[in-house]
Design a binder for these strands. Structure first.
Lengths: 111, 111
DNA sequence: ATTCTATATTGCAATATTACGATAAAGATT
DNA sequence: AATCTTTATCGTAATATTGCAATATAGAAT
């Protein structure tokens, strides 16, 4: 049914999965990498950078904005986007502290 | 249309977005955290641990297995799952090297 | 051999995502 | 003011995801 039973999961689990979901599309990864490469805010270059239509890109930007991975500010008649370091750090911290805490099984264990 | 134009993105962009997509659901985050907590392989406890039906959980496990985040091996009449460190490291590396390379804008810049 | 237990698969319904053409909105330029 | 440029929104179609009941599968236990 597509009903997401997010009530049964912790706040943190819902939050991190939302962030990961936002990273779960190559176009959005490409957008983020483009912003990274520029080492600064990017004003009005994103549409010409991606092999997608302007409405589609606008939609992807919106999704990244919704989870605070990027922020945008109006600059003249174009919009400047930049990465939100705070959110990126949240992702980094989760991966660092949680995921990388995985331990190798001892020899003789099942995996 | 849901047509994913993955041909236009790099191999790495497609790969990392697939991994992130697999992390983009609270149930799958919960599964991973459960495996982490156990510090070992887990045989036959996952279904009772989550507020979802057995088929649904099986499906989520399959998705995690498809992208090699977990691996499972048959052990008697139950199945033991464990995390695949290699893939977790791939995620960690990407986040570390790529995402955390983001730089703060200098004062006076647009964001 | 039959039954039990654990997991996978199938089939299907509800919802979400992805994509884009058409159009709107808003500031810049002429 | 009319036009251009850039971005957002609307409407809609195609596809994917999520969830579960029913059922299948496979090894264990009786």
């Amino acid at each position: 049914m597509g009903i997401s039973k997010s009530d049964f999961f912790t706040e943190e689990q819902n939050e991190i999965s939302n962030l990961m979901k936002a990273l779960g599309h190559p176009a959005r990864i490409a957008i983020i990498e483009f912003l990274l490469k520029k080492e600064s805010c990017v004003c009005g270059d994103i549409v010409s950078e991606l092999p997608l239509s302007q409405p589609t890109i606008s939609q992807h930007l919106k999704e990244l904005k919704n989870v605070n991975i990027i922020k945008g500010s109006v600059e003249g008649n174009s919009i400047c986007y930049c990465l939100n370091l705070e959110t990126l750090e949240k992702i980094q911290n989760y991966v660092q502290l949680t995921i990388s805490g995985a331990t190798k099984c001892k020899p003789g264990e099942c995996c």
